[in-house]
Design a protein around this nucleic acid. Sequence first.
DNA 1: CGTTTCAATATGTATATACATAATTGCCAT
DNA 2: ATGGCAATTATGTATATACATATTGAAACG
Lengths: 246, 246
Amino acid sequence: MSLIETAATEGGGSLHQRILSDISEKILSGAWAPGHRIPFEHELTAEYNCSRMTVNKALSQLAKAGLIERRRRSGSFVRRPQSQAAVLEIHDIRIEVEALGLLYRYERLARLKRRSSAEDRALLELTAAGPVLALECLHFAGQRPFAHEQRLINLTAVVEAGEEEFLEIAPGPWLIGRVPWSEAEHRIRAIAADQHIADALDIEPGAPCLVVERRTWSAEHPVTHVRFIYAAESHTLVARFRPSQG
Amino acid sequence: MSLIETAATEGGGSLHQRILSDISEKILSGAWAPGHRIPFEHELTAEYNCSRMTVNKALSQLAKAGLIERRRRSGSFVRRPQSQAAVLEIHDIRIEVEALGLLYRYERLARLKRRSSAEDRALLELTAAGPVLALECLHFAGQRPFAHEQRLINLTAVVEAGEEEFLEIAPGPWLIGRVPWSEAEHRIRAIAADQHIADALDIEPGAPCLVVERRTWSAEHPVTHVRFIYAAESHTLVARFRPSQG
DNA sequence: CGTTTCAATATGTATATACATAATTGCCAT
DNA sequence: ATGGCAATTATGTATATACATATTGAAACG
């Protein structure tokens, strides 16, 4: 998450935060390499002249952040960096379009409430059958189609979506306003436009498109699966970030 | 930080985790709307028949996760859903390939040390002229070409790269091991393969490809610009993440 | 009527303590 | 040796307690 919001230099006031900063600084600077055993709680207790609970709070957070691994009886160890992780900003399509200085327009193409098919359940990662809402929408930038949206909403998780027509408001912002997401999975890839997509986006069949699929959970419950397809010329995902760990 | 890994349903064993799950469930389900005041610590203490520290631990984590906001003297309140920012995992290509259970192989196609052209400087966001190293590489998954890499390294920032041939080791891991990056910018888009890329990746010209461009800085100095091109069938970027809160 | 002061209150941090739990170590008996 | 048992040990969780700190709301004051 992000994590460790205060570096050693900023010293977040409280002791457990200082301990946390000190240790994460050692890890991030490389002074303590992956595998290195961090001093035991009782050692840190002595070093900082504080109680074990205070040390424990710091180490627990480091473990939660993924910087260290804690093993009973063995101690705590610096974890190997899992990956280069970065913060990717996922904007609302309206915001993306308006950032380009173009007029945003939204259009709902289709809406169907149905009992979930096997495919629906696979997309949503649903185990039990239940009602879903299938939507197909288009987002325009000026006169041109900008993105095609194909969405499933799990009506078991978001009951009131069943009553919404989504003629005026796009399902993305509608959901954001109602259901905070706790976790999401993105898949980003390139495809060639099939006839249907080509028609919708007003491009040639076979033309390259960027596909962004997002699956969202709220409190462990699958909420929605959405597939955005952008014509290649119209879109670039931009992400600016700093290294983090975990 | 990591957030709510256990939902109410899974019941993470410990009490503070159950409290955390219960509350986050209420928030994520919408039962407690944004702005809603969460019971005071002493009320939860009574409800769960536990000490305030236990309740405090749960609420502190919820606050850190960004689900609630805590105000002294006023109480804790459900926050409005935050911006959708997320952690995108960017792996090393070797790791990606090996994760697929395929044999990884690397090949350097071309290497050229030269004075930076205007185009080079634009890609690296360099202001002053200076030497750069231009590389072209291929990454294989089993027998098939997996990704085409086109890279510029700023030799002013990374002098020793000028002596490296990059015949055995790919520039990515080489740089990671030497130059910590402090900031990066990614651009992700779809393109149609031109003749050169089609030849390199052994696909048809015009076939859709996923392009990932990364520009990296270390301590404000531009370090490298790299463009990976993946054949569409071979690659999907996967990113799993949680809402983060600044 | 506006301002200052002050007490009440909820959260923030820390302590000492206790017992639970998991894993390693070493010892013992086979 | 070796397989199993028990002691040791570090972490995991929880408690009761204490004091600090920020903010609110009301009382006191000019």
